[in-house]
Amino acid sequence: MSIVIKAENLNFSYPETESTPKVDALKNISFEIEEGTFTAILGHNGSGKSTLAKILCMILESQTGSLTIMGKDVNSENITDEEIMDIRKEVGMVFQNPDNQIVATIVEEDVAFGCENLGIPSVEIRERVDNALKEVGMYEYREHPVAKLSGGQKQRVAIAGVIAMRRKCIIFDESTAMLDPIGRKDVLNIIKKLNREHNITVILITHYMNEASMADKILVMNEGRIVASDTPEKIFGDPQKMWDIGLDVPQTTEFLYKLNHYGYSFPITVFDPEAVAEIVSKEFSSVE
């Protein structure tokens, strides 16, 4: 598999202003993301997650270190404006607040907005918009006013806009945080489908540990650094470490971990409640 994003020793600071001191948001960040993978980024508020996301889709520019996106060194002095635009066409982003990223009044116009800016012929835009809306299950709403949709539906429209632009990599910056359980489930299912069926590289920034447990790899950030980078099994396999930096583990893991204090040796990184019940009942039914 090819590497789509490779970061080496990235640093980023927000400059000093009249009232605030300089903030080192990213400190020596290095990681690689392979094509078609699902990566979750965990970390508490202010740990640098969103700064990193903005650098990856080139809203912000890292100050030192090297960043290669789709094979192009974006920090190189020789990079042309066209090349920067090309990279921006590969990496899309869906933000947290659905109301902050809707630009048009009608669903299909909003989805088409990005494509129009790319100068795609209108016949093709029509086709892309229809397909994208079907993909997120919002096709029946194509002529509805966006303002009347629920938060989850708006977020699906925003995702459709990114799909229509055919991004190879999509960053979701806490895109489920403001949604209710149903909206969250819908959006997560779409994210999984994009990744598994369409081979889109997904980076999901989240506070929900059970969402992170679906990823191929988790990056844990704390105070501007990547403090761990591994599979969900390895990351959640050490709950104490997560608790120490103010994060959590899925309840399934917490349950098995705490049972192990009583002398059991359950594998603690099982994330499906039914599967947890299965292994626990095997142990306990033999007791009775």
Binding site: E254, K258, Y262, A277, E278, S281
Partner: peptide, 28 residues
């Protein structure tokens, strides 16, 4: 909560720890 779903699934398997499970510590 996930822990409530675990308790419900345990009950189906014949391990009944009650219907009022909603925190991990209590379940344990």
């Amino acid at each position: 909560p996930q822990i409530t779903r675990i308790a419900a699934a345990l009950k189906k398997n014949g391990i009944d720890i009650g219907d009022d499970i909603y925190t991990v510590d209590y379940a344990v």
